[in-house]
Simulated assay, not measured.
Amino acid sequence: MLKQAALIALLGVSASAMAGGWQVKVGGSTIAPTQDTTVAGVGVVKAESELAFTPSVEYFFGDSPISAELLLAAPVNHDVSINGENAVKIKHLPPTLTVKYNFKNSTRFTPYIGVGGTAFIAWDEETKGALSGASVKVKEDYGFAGQVGFNFQPADAKNWGVFVDARYAQLSPEVRVENTPIKFDLDIDPMVYTIGYSYKF
């Protein structure tokens, strides 16, 4: 309940602003899970690393160093293995909202840090290998997110720049194999490493 409340509060913060500037960011990301799960009678269950297209929209609150960024990643196809063998493919969306502090300075580098909330919205689970023919359901999950990175604006650039950042997402969606007693939380907790272009209006 606390996770959902935090996410709703952050959405309210970004929607309440009346004046400021917008920035669109287009990048490519590596989504690298940092955890795996040992399930009794099943073995080691692990979400594998994936590549994703990750556009985002950022809003700057006037002249302050505060901004809010909403990650709008394209649907991600995530492979899940059991004891090293691919068993489930999950298509999901990972919308993530962070409130950021931008360290403005006299250089063209602008470092930033952010905290916020994230979601794991799954659908269209497909089984194969050890689970071929079984029906697997993955529930939505919500968690906290952290972000650190920088934006660089070249000398000849008026509105555009390049950025690099890393995000951490706390996610452990519930997985259930129907018509069996198998049910567990899949610990993913991914790091998301992104590089891309930014354009500020």
Rank of each mutant, 00 (worst) to 15 (best):
V26T: 14
G21K: 12
S49L: 03
K25G: 03
S14P: 01
G28R: 00
F53G: 04
A32V: 11
M18W: 14
L51Y: 15
G20H: 15
Q35T: 11
A17I: 14
W22D: 05
Q23A: 08
G27H: 00
V26L: 15
V26S: 08
E50M: 03
A52F: 08
A32K: 15
P33F: 06
G41N: 06
A52P: 07
G28Y: 06
E48G: 08
S14W: 01
G28N: 01
S49R: 06
V39T: 01
S29W: 08
T38A: 00
V39N: 01
S16L: 07
T34Q: 14
V24C: 02
T30D: 08
T38W: 10
V24S: 11
A15P: 02
V39Y: 06
F53L: 15
G28H: 04
K25P: 01
V39W: 13
G20Y: 10
Q35L: 13
V39P: 03
L51R: 04
K25T: 00
I31F: 14
G21S: 12
V45P: 03
I31M: 11
K46E: 06
G20L: 13
G43K: 08
E50G: 09
V39A: 00
I31Y: 15
A40M: 08
A15V: 07
W22R: 09
M18P: 05
S49K: 06
V42G: 06
A47N: 10
T34P: 02
E50P: 04
W22P: 00
S14V: 11
V42F: 09
T30Y: 14
K25W: 02
A17N: 14
A47E: 10
I31H: 12
K25S: 03
T38N: 12
V26N: 07
V44F: 07
A40G: 09
E50A: 15
L51V: 13
K25L: 02
A15E: 04
S29G: 05
V42A: 01
S16A: 12
A15D: 05
A15T: 13
S29Q: 07
S14H: 03
G21T: 12
D36R: 13
A47Q: 14
V44T: 13
T34L: 13
G21V: 06
D36L: 11
V24Y: 02
A19N: 09
V44P: 02
A32P: 02
E50H: 03
T34K: 09
S16R: 04
G27M: 10
G27S: 05
G41Y: 05
T34W: 05
G41Q: 05
G20R: 11
S49H: 08
A19P: 03
V45T: 03
E50S: 15
Q23I: 00
G41M: 08
L51E: 03
A47L: 06
M18T: 12
E50I: 04
K25M: 07
I31W: 07
I31L: 14
S16N: 05
G20K: 14
G21W: 09
A19E: 13
T37R: 08
A52R: 02
T38H: 12
V39Q: 12
I31N: 07
M18I: 09
Q23S: 11
T30A: 15
E50K: 01
E50V: 10
V44A: 04
A15N: 09
V42M: 12
Q23D: 00
T37G: 00
A17K: 13
G28M: 07
A15G: 10
